[in-house]
Computed example of a mutant assay.
Amino acid sequence: MYQADSTRYDQMVYKRLGHSGLKLSAIGLGLWHNFGSVDNLANQQAIIHKAFDLGITYYDLANNYGPVPGSAEANFGRIMAHDMKPYRDEMIIASKAGYEMWPGPYGDWGSRKSIIASANQSLQRLGLDYVDIFYSHRPDPETDVTETALALDQLVHEGKTLYVGISNYSGAQTAAIAKIFKDLKTPFVIHQPRYNMFNREVETDVFPELRKAGIGAVGFSALSQGLLTDKYLHGIPEDSRAKKSSSPFLHPAQVEATLKTVAQLNDLAQKRGQTLAEMALAWNLREPEVASVLVGASRPAQLVDNVHALANLDFTAAELKAIDTILAAQGTISWGAH
């Protein structure tokens, strides 16, 4: 039977979410990839164990993560029941609804029907009475934001989630729903945007609204699908995500377009005594609004490497200026949400 490492809280950094009382581990584990029905369950189990032993307390899911959709939640639920149940109160478990999950008009977007049904299904797959955070995964252009907000508020009152959040909302959309939640006294504590060195729009759009509302952030795609690592410095590996023609999020042309920039950033990271991935994670965490950054893992050792980023979170003014100069020469890169 799994026994957690007794030193698990010694090295991890925990940051408060905005004005709330909730803290997240600065590194969170995202289960978007590698936790589906097509992935080895024993490896998933080993990744969860290593994450918890490293002090990672935030586990990020969504109803449609897989493949197949729903299988990441089901697998996480199996691991929770078998190994992690004694540690449930030490974990922040989050899920979301808003991308297509089942056919027909109710398995997608942000209606009350879809949000409530999705949350109930997620809890059943997870084998939990409640999640700690439930998100609207994306804004619904055909549903009034009040309806989505009221559905999330209902989940709190039903005891199915402790807090609510949003993901992929613009600054204006964030401000609109934040006002509704404030009036309802809903515990709205978190926004989950795409944020990394190549996707910085949220710095001027979303983060100012988070500051006004006292809301924190957890960033996804912190390593830009692997671009902000040393994986592609010497070409595209055959087993990489970029090489797989089925990947809608990363293509060889995107890798080639960033090679010079990545090499320059890698040189700077080495001067800081970090890998590029470690520097990229630390750079995200420099923002006061960012309480946590999500990382994915296909094996436990990757989590150990990512947590090393916490050993050097400070940047000099010269280092930040150098990063800005390198990125300005590259220009902005952006592609679809998850």
Rank of each mutant, 00 (worst) to 15 (best):
P139V: 03
V218Y: 05
T146A: 14
R194E: 15
T174P: 01
Q225I: 00
V206D: 05
V164Q: 01
T204K: 15
Q192G: 04
A217S: 15
R138S: 04
K179P: 00
E158R: 10
P208T: 11
N196Y: 06
L162W: 10
L150H: 13
A151P: 05
F220D: 03
I180F: 01
H191I: 11
V145E: 10
R194D: 13
H137D: 07
T229F: 05
R194Y: 09
I177E: 02
Q192I: 07
A176G: 00
G165Y: 03
I190P: 01
T174K: 01
F198Q: 09
Y130E: 07
Y130W: 10
A149F: 09
K212M: 11
A217I: 08
Q225M: 14
V131W: 02
D144S: 08
D230C: 03
P141S: 01
I190Q: 14
E142V: 00
P139T: 03
T229M: 09
T186H: 07
I133F: 05
Y195G: 10
F188H: 08
G216A: 08
Q154D: 15
T146V: 12
V131T: 13
K182L: 01
L210G: 10
K160N: 07
F181D: 05
D153Y: 13
Y135T: 04
I180A: 02
G235K: 05
A176I: 00
S221M: 12
T146D: 12
R200W: 11
K179D: 14
F220P: 02
Y130L: 01
V145K: 03
A172M: 11
G226M: 05
V131S: 07
A149T: 09
T186W: 10
N199I: 10
T229R: 08
Y130P: 00
Y135A: 02
A149R: 05
L223K: 03
I133Q: 05
I180R: 08
F207L: 15
V145M: 11
P141L: 00
F207A: 12
A217D: 08
Y195R: 09
G165N: 04
A151H: 04
H157N: 15
R194S: 14
K182H: 13
A151W: 07
Q173L: 04
I190Y: 02
G214K: 13
D144P: 05
A151N: 08
F220M: 12
Y163Q: 03
Q173A: 04
D183I: 10
T148R: 06
P208G: 10
T161A: 15
K179T: 14
P141R: 00
A222D: 08
K185S: 15
G214Y: 13
Q225F: 12
R211E: 15
L233C: 10
F198A: 12
I166F: 02
I166Y: 01
P139H: 03
L155D: 03
R138D: 00
G159C: 09
L162H: 13
T161W: 04
Y163P: 04
N199H: 13
I190H: 11
V202Y: 07
P208E: 12
A217W: 05
Q173G: 14
Q173I: 01
A178T: 09
G226K: 07
I180M: 01
E209N: 14
I180C: 01
